[in-house]
Amino acid sequence: MTNSVAPTLVSEASLARLRRAAPALLLLLALALASLLSGSTGGLRLASPDRSHVDQLRRVIGELPSGSLVLIAFDADLGTYAEIRATTRAAIDDLAAHGVRLAIVSFTPEGRAIAAAERDRIIRAGSADPPADLGFVAGSEAGLVRSIESIVPSGAAGETFDAVRQRGGGIGAFDMVLVVSGSDISARSWVEQVGTRLPGLSLVAIAPTFLDPELEPYLRSGQLTALLSTLREGVAYAQAVSAGSASGPGPTVGPLPMLIGMLAALAVLAEAGFRRLGRRGRRPARRRARP
């Protein structure tokens, strides 16, 4: 007589794996559904109720004369760019809507990767006048200092490049610099290396939240003209820009996926904490039970 086991479609190990992965899969499913439903989110609000930083940036951009030269220093990093992506895109749209001539440069390899992707997106969207590509400048902060003298690549040709060359060819040729900050080169590097050498240059920044404590003092001292450094300020800014634009708001972060993610995080923290407390509570009882 053989002791045969009936074959099962799913093995025990597979079931255990599926059970372990189920919470993460359910969370991803909920986030995907919430992203689709984020149009109807009554009672939820992601945009910051404090609009002072948003108004400040809008005023600085609004005061730029048409045809001004603005440099976008794209040095975001891949880890935090998701937080400032919508804000950066809204700022580029805002600048383009005010008729400024844009140029884009990066001093970090990661920043260059993101800048290339964003410029490619702008071109694919059918923009008649995409930002002039000043490329990647090597040397990190030393490269930044060198660019004060000369930032235009030698072979570059085009109206914006010529305008920069006519005004001296360096960073000083620009009326304003928008620093899209990351962890390697942030607005702080610009204030320290460029602001001290070109005190008349207007520096505005978009930064992920972790840089806010570092950059806020520069805003208060006037070394930064404007700063958006939290997701909620970014959402408020994107909404303000889209409210005055005929092209629509574009993709922005919705409050519902954010809420679901936050509640899931709170639930996991609470579950792990209470489970640990429960184990601690049971331990003395076991000891007492021993002979």
């Binding site: 993460a24 969370l27 891949l78 880890g79 760019y81 998701a82 260059r112 990767a113 993101i114 290339a116 992707a117 490619d120 997106r121 993610g261 899931a264 995080a265 996991v268 923290l269 792990a272």
Partner: peptide, 27 residues
Amino acid sequence: LWLVAGLLAPIAASVFALLFIFLLAAF
């Protein structure tokens, strides 16, 4: 530019998007 914009940036973004799950698991 294609390699960077079409491959590197999305792959890196996907990896960083998993941080949320991994961070909770680490907790």
